[in-house]
């Protein structure tokens, strides 16, 4: 019976509650596990590069200036906030914050850059304790990601033998 079903539909509509939030007029706090912008704690970071190696979006770069100084840069561009970096960090130096209002005309607002003093043992990836074999560091030793152009450089078979590694940056293959 169509009229009856129209009445029922009207009833559903009339008794409807409201799920629309007053945001942005009222604040809408994110739940506890919310994965917002990752925050890097320079005091805790040991520069193991576990986050950089396990970032699906390749958003974390590592550059060894010299034996003692390692730069870790978070790019904040295409980060998907998956939280893998925070998962694998052995020192809990990365927290997924509840920040989600990250729209900005200057990407620098989101980026983080940590300069780490590394002891002479080089910390060449061996200090990273991977959660499983699949998360193990594939890039060990010194790292020279392209900070200028903000690109990850990896030595792996992703690039064909004899070809430049990232467009214009020739690099030795393993």
């Amino acid at each position: 019976m169509s009229l009856l079903s129209k009445v029922k539909e009207a009833w559903v509509g009339l008794r409807a509650g409201r799920v629309t939030l007053a945001y942005p007029a009222a604040p809408a706090p994110a739940p506890e596990r919310f994965r917002g912008r990752p925050i890097f704690d320079a005091a805790k970071c040991i520069g193991c590069a576990g986050c950089a190696n396990n970032c699906p979006a390749r958003e974390i770069l590592v550059y060894d200036v010299c034996q003692e100084i390692r730069i870790l840069k978070y790019l904040g561009r295409r980060c998907t906030y998956c939280g893998r970096c925070a998962d694998v960090c052995p020192e809990n130096a990365i927290t997924m914050s509840r920040e989600f209002e990250t729209a900005t005309p200057r990407i620098g607002d989101l980026q983080q850059r940590i300069e780490l003093f590394m002891s002479t043992c080089q910390r060449c990836g061996r200090c990273f304790d991977p959660p499983s074999k699949l998360d193990e560091l594939k890039l060990r030793g010194y790292r020279f990601d392209d900070l200028e152009n903000e690109r990850w450089i990896f030595r792996s078979s992703a690039y064909l033998e004899g070809q430049p590694v990232v467009d214009d940056v020739p690099l030795e293959m393993d």
Partner: peptide, 25 residues
């Protein structure tokens, strides 16, 4: 409108469990 209203609490609980409304990772 009603279907979307009824659906919304599901999105909230997904966010509470996984940290995101949709991409649960």
């Amino acid at each position: 409108m009603q279907a979307f209203r009824i659906r919304e609490p599901l999105m909230w609980i997904a966010e509470k469990i996984s940290g995101n409304r949709k991409t649960y990772s």
